[in-house]
Simulated assay, not measured.
Amino acid sequence: MSSASFTPPWNVRRLPRADGSVFLVTGGNAGIGYFVAEQLSATGATVVLGSREPAKADVAMASIRARVAGARVRAVRLDLADLSSLRPVVESLGVDRLDAVVHNAGVALDDPPRRETGDGHELMFGTNHLGHFALTARLMPLLSAAPAARVVTVGSFAAKSERLDLDDLQSGNDYRPKRSYGRSKLAQMYFGFELDRRLRAVGSRVASVVVHPGGALDSLTPSRPPIQVRTAGARLSAAPAALLVQGKHAGAWPAVRAVLDPAVDGGQLWGPRVFGLRGEPRRERVWNHLADVSVAARLWDTSRDLTGVDPGDLPGPSEGHMP
């Protein structure tokens, strides 16, 4: 094998350069999203944190700059629970192209009662799924302007055991917080796969990849005060769990690889190597229920009707998508 054709193994601690690229990370001010942003910043790319709370975004940017010399990081205000606020996001980015968006932000409620967004949608479904669905539509002109952009949707291992109720997507008839959360993440994952099918159908250069972080615990996550603080007691008590799960810094690895690795293709699922719960990122077989294109198509149509936009409504190759 010639040296020109040799591709080194993926190394989560030695990422390829991405100078000149622009990446948007929703929810990049905390949790897994913060570590996605921190790791991507080390590649020389410009990383934009999408956050509904500017003060928290400022703290996250200061933390990244303290750890990544020369980090090019900034923030835009982004509230996925308010669909009308998403249109101005494109202008606020101030770029002529976007090389990747990581759909990471999410709401997880542990207890009733059921809550709704200002648009009248169940809060988790409306934010985690519908918000990202609509944001993708708004961003598609910028993504289409890049040579080979990627939409990376961060799902959840919790979605593996869930199934969508297409007649009650917003849990109006039977609301259980943990189940509704899992289903909202499952809807996101269906969207990611269906988006790629529709992008391929029109010859778009944009690819859609789905990832999940496995089991990612605060107690196994390195400290990034004041964003993430891990005490010595928490570290010791969590040690046994490290055999099965990992911290949020490692939970970020599949998304980072999906953004950067040229070997990753649209329509793929990536997660942690060990039982899908911990370890370095690897490609997984698409879960059986996620391969149901009829469910994905029905979800897409409902999401389009609820948001009033269609991320797959793109011109064909002869209308501006050819190199």
Score class of each variant (00 low, 15 high):
1 M>R: 02
2 S>P: 15
2 S>T: 11
5 S>R: 00
7 T>D: 13
8 P>H: 09
11 N>I: 06
12 V>H: 07
13 R>Q: 15
23 F>E: 08
25 V>N: 09
32 I>E: 06
34 Y>R: 04
34 Y>L: 15
35 F>P: 05
42 A>T: 12
43 T>D: 12
51 S>Y: 02
59 V>L: 12
64 I>K: 01
65 R>L: 12
66 A>T: 01
69 A>E: 14
70 G>N: 06
75 A>L: 03
79 D>K: 01
79 D>I: 05
80 L>F: 02
84 S>C: 05
91 E>M: 06
93 L>D: 08
96 D>H: 03
96 D>C: 04
99 D>C: 06
103 H>I: 11
103 H>N: 15
111 D>F: 08
111 D>V: 12
112 P>W: 04
115 R>S: 12
116 E>M: 02
117 T>S: 09
121 H>T: 08
122 E>P: 00
125 F>S: 07
132 H>E: 13
134 A>Y: 00
135 L>V: 07
146 A>Y: 13
147 P>G: 07
147 P>D: 12
147 P>H: 05
150 R>I: 14
152 V>L: 06
155 G>W: 01
156 S>M: 04
158 A>K: 01
160 K>F: 07
161 S>N: 11
165 D>W: 02
168 D>Q: 05
171 S>D: 13
175 Y>W: 08
180 S>M: 11
181 Y>N: 12
183 R>T: 11
186 L>V: 11
190 Y>F: 14
193 F>Y: 10
197 R>G: 08
204 S>F: 09
205 R>C: 10
206 V>G: 04
209 V>H: 00
212 H>V: 03
212 H>F: 02
216 A>R: 00
222 P>Q: 04
227 I>V: 13
231 T>P: 12
234 A>H: 07
238 A>Q: 07
239 A>L: 15
241 A>R: 05
242 A>R: 10
243 L>Y: 05
252 A>Y: 01
252 A>S: 06
264 V>E: 02
265 D>P: 01
269 L>S: 05
275 F>T: 10
276 G>F: 04
281 P>V: 09
282 R>P: 02
282 R>M: 15
284 E>I: 00
286 V>A: 01
287 W>L: 14
289 H>Q: 13
289 H>P: 06
290 L>T: 03
291 A>K: 03
293 V>Q: 07
294 S>D: 14
298 R>Y: 03
302 T>I: 10
306 L>H: 03
310 D>W: 07
315 P>Q: 08
316 G>D: 15
316 G>C: 11
317 P>R: 10
318 S>K: 05
323 P>D: 12
